[in-house]
Nucleic acid binder design. Structure first.
Length: 103
DNA sequence: AGGGTGACGATCA
DNA sequence: ATGATCGCCACCC
């Protein structure tokens, strides 16, 4: 069963273009669940066919561990995403979700 | 129903 | 910068 919340999380994640990244918190907000950053991770873990490697922790830090973390970093660098130490250079590579506004 | 959990996030020492 | 703590929230026994 795929809960609606996961569907929305994944929909948001699929919007992240190649060569760009986002964070669990930002994805949660984009999906309409501003406090559900952890659920973004849960959704990613279970989902298939989504650019999971483009989702990082706050500050552009890779929050995965072990072999998964190495894969993630490699995949990102393959897409041209640049790192600065252990973190992605968010100033240049963070994808900004279109946010709703009232105008 | 109740309690533990986690690919999080912000804060503080 | 690093580690501890606490707040969050849906999921899984």
């Amino acid at each position: 069963m795929m809960s609606i919340i996961h569907s929305r999380m994944l929909a948001a994640i699929r919007q992240i273009p190649r060569g760009k990244v986002s964070t669990y918190g930002a994805v949660g907000r984009a999906a309409g669940y501003p406090r559900a950053a952890r659920q973004v991770a849960v959704a990613l873990r279970k989902a298939v066919e989504v650019p999971w490697h483009r989702v990082l922790g706050a500050g552009g830090e890779i929050k995965t561990s072990g072999h998964t973390a190495l894969d993630q970093r490699l995949l990102l660098q393959m897409e041209g995403v640049g790192f600065r130490g252990r973190r992605v250079d968010m100033a240049k590579f963070e994808f900004k979700f279109a946010k709703k506004r009232k105008d």
